[in-house]
């Protein structure tokens, strides 16, 4: 067990961030069971170290593009938990006014461009956001999160080529949780080393342990610095695992239960907590205190969503066009 190389305050913030995602999603799952949240709900539980490590490395002026498993990314980008929960409820107070739901969280003011539920659909978008920054000579980085399932799509290959060809300021953060819905990487890809795919475009790459928030944070910091320096795009593979099924509809029959248990031993929250405790940066009482604070935030978010209002049906056709 290696020591965490950060000041205590920074470590506690990372831990708190992971807990905020975990507790938000546990509550969302509970509310899904209660029928308050409908549609698809894709939980990130198990993968929290990726978003928690990356988000503090991304500047406020940068752009973020994410997938349909993006509750954690939106939350740590600064979208209020209540606005996320209200969105899952379909309420007007939601961050997309109830038009998007769990898969389409947006916050333009925080430069959070979704919430994209077409696998690899965010990559061309991120490439274009980066092109705009290049043309406007901004020092903005665009960070694009996507799962390993996306590497099978043409959009991945086309975007990687375009980004590298034009040296665009975009960081491609691949969250490899080993399963594209129910299909294991090895059952769908002839080349399972994702960095080799990126390297084929001449792109700089990094492969990191996605269960370790220190590793993810350091990698994201390095990648953002590389991109911001004007050296062109970078691809980072975060090797991670989701503990829950693909969505609430998924009976999870394609994975060995033992495999899930093995990965859970590497769970990002308890392993990081253990390291902090070992170096006296955290006590059990302090952990419980943080958790209690997070739970209060979650309860308040759920209460806000519950008390939220429904958009009047007369407004149904608004926001299809700007004018």
């Amino acid at each position: 067990m290696s020591a965490v190389p950060y000041p205590r305050e920074k470590s506690i913030a990372l831990l708190t961030d992971m807990l905020r995602i975990r507790r938000l999603e546990e509550k969302a799952a509970e509310l899904y069971g209660a029928g308050k949240i409908r549609g698809f709900l894709h939980l990130y539980i198990g993968e929290e170290a990726v978003a928690a490590g990356c988000m503090p490395a991304i500047a406020a002026g940068d752009n973020v593009v994410a997938t349909y498993r993006e509750h954690g990314h939106a939350l740590l980008r600064g979208v209020p938990m209540g606005a996320i929960m209200a969105e899952m409820y379909g309420k007007r107070e939601g961050c997309s006014r109830g038009r998007g739901g769990s898969m389409h969280l947006f916050d333009a003011a925080r430069r959070f461009y979704g919430g994209n539920a077409i696998v690899a659909g965010g990559l061309p978008l991120a490439t274009g956001l980066a092109l705009a920054s290049l043309l406007k000579k901004e020092s903005r980085v665009t960070v694009c999160f996507f799962g390993e399932g996306a590497v099978a799509e043409g959009a991945f290959h086309e975007s990687m080529n375009l980004a590298q060809l034009w040296k665009l300021p975009v960081a491609f953060f691949c969250e490899n949780n080993l399963y594209a819905m129910g299909t294991a990487l090895a059952r769908s890809e002839s080349q399972t080393d994702l960095c080799i795919k990126a390297a084929a475009f001449g792109m700089a790459t990094l492969k990191v342990d996605g269960m370790d928030v220190v590793a993810t944070h350091d990698a994201a910091t390095k990648a953002c610095a590389h991109v911001r320096s004007g050296a062109g795009p970078m691809f980072v593979e975060f090797q991670t695992y989701r503990f829950r099924a693909h969505s609430m509809f998924d009976p999870d029959l394609y994975r060995d239960k033992k495999e899930i248990e093995e990965w859970k031993k590497r769970g990002p929250i308890h392993t990081f907590s253990a390291r902090l405790k070992a170096q006296d940066h955290l006590s059990e009482a302090q952990f419980l205190d943080i958790d209690a604070r997070v739970m209060r935030e979650v309860d308040e978010a759920a209460a806000l969503a519950e008390a939220g209002t429904w958009e009047p049906v007369e407004d149904l056709t608004r926001d299809v066009y700007t004018t």
Binding site: Y113, L123, L125, G128, L131, T142, N161
Partner: peptide
């Protein structure tokens, strides 16, 4: 060449990049 850009034969990516560039203020 900044403003008149030849693209690879990647309709999906360069049309999508157009969407992103529009979001980015171009």
């Amino acid at each position: 060449p900044e403003r008149v850009r030849d693209t690879p034969l990647s309709e999906l990516a360069f049309v999508g990049a157009g969407v992103g560039a529009a979001l980015g203020g171009m």
